[in-house]
């Protein structure tokens, strides 16, 4: 890719929109995952008994079980949310940028 083409693509508002929208989306989702996971790990490190509390008075199922399963489902859901938006909105923008690049 030569410098001229790079500069033209960078000047394309669609490209700027793509990069800023996708970066902020990816960072937000990453932070969401990291916050959830590190909260879990730090709870285990500093206060493990919190997750060992029974859910109801006489049940043996602890709070940790649904929390753990929920983190697995959360991780999968995040990948679904990102993929859905990237494969529609971001890919549409990318295609527009590619089309425009052909005409430069």
């Amino acid at each position: 890719m030569n410098k001229e083409l790079v500069d033209k693509i960078k000047a394309n508002p669609d490209y700027q929109e793509l990069v800023s929208k996708r970066s902020s989306f990816a960072i937000k989702l990453s932070i969401a995952m990291l916050v959830v996971y590190f909260s879990f790990i730090l709870t285990i490190a500093f206060n493990p008994s919190a997750l060992g509390t029974p859910m109801f008075d006489d049940s043996v199922t602890t709070i940790g079980i649904p929390v753990g399963i929920a983190i697995i489902i959360f991780a999968f859901t995040l990948t679904g949310i990102y993929t859905a938006r990237a494969n529609s909105e971001f890919d549409d923008l990318t295609n527009k940028i590619k089309q425009a690049a052909k005409d430069y």
Binding site: A26, M33, G64, A75, T79, Y82, A86
Partner: peptide
């Protein structure tokens, strides 16, 4: 028991990050 679940969650949570940052 529960420790096994902690371990497997650790293996899983790298994947969303790989998707958001590395894959494309």
């Amino acid at each position: 028991g529960y420790d096994g679940l902690i371990y497997s969650i650790g293996f899983l949570v790298g994947w969303p990050i790989i998707l958001f940052m590395i894959a494309e």
